[in-house]
Amino acid sequence: MTTPRDLLFVTMDVESSRTVERGNLSLALAGAELIDLLEAQAVSLDGDRIVPGYRPAVADRLMDEAASSLDQQPPYESVDDWLWRRGRGLSTAYLTAFETEGQLTRQPRNRWIPFRSGGELTLADSPARRAAAARWTAGEPVLAALATALRLRDERPEEPADVADEAVETVLATVADAVNELEFERQRRAIDDEAFSNIWRGPGG
Rank of each mutant, 00 (worst) to 15 (best):
A93L: 12
R153V: 10
A131Y: 03
E99Y: 05
V179L: 06
D81R: 12
Q107E: 13
D81M: 12
V43D: 04
L8T: 07
D125C: 05
A124T: 13
W200M: 10
Y76Q: 01
Q41C: 13
L25D: 01
V142F: 02
E194H: 14
A176Y: 10
E33F: 15
Y94R: 12
Q107T: 07
D13V: 03
A66V: 03
A164T: 15
Y94G: 09
L104R: 03
L29P: 02
R61M: 11
F115T: 09
L143F: 06
E33P: 10
P157V: 02
S197H: 09
V175I: 09
S117V: 09
A66S: 14
T148Y: 09
T100Y: 08
V175Y: 02
A97K: 13
G118Y: 07
L146P: 01
L146E: 00
G89H: 05
R111W: 03
G205W: 10
P160A: 02
R129Q: 11
N180M: 04
R109W: 11
L143H: 03
S26R: 00
R189D: 10
L62V: 08
V51T: 06
G31L: 08
V79W: 14
A132G: 11
S17Q: 14
A30V: 08
S26W: 01
L70Y: 08
P127H: 04
L45S: 07
R188C: 11
R116D: 13
V10E: 05
A190R: 12
R61N: 06
F98L: 07
E15Y: 06
T170D: 04
E194T: 03
D48H: 12
R22A: 05
E166R: 12
G89L: 09
G87K: 00
A128W: 12
T11D: 00
R156P: 01
E65V: 11
E33T: 07
F9I: 09
F9M: 08
W136G: 06
S78L: 01
V10M: 05
L123G: 15
Q73E: 15
V58A: 07
I35E: 11
P141R: 03
R85D: 05
L95R: 13
N110P: 03
W200Y: 15
R86T: 05
R5D: 03
M1F: 09
N24L: 03
Q103E: 15
D162S: 08
V171C: 05
D192K: 10
F98C: 00
V79T: 12
D154K: 09
F9C: 07
D64E: 11
R129I: 13
D64S: 12
M12G: 04
A138I: 05
S117Y: 03
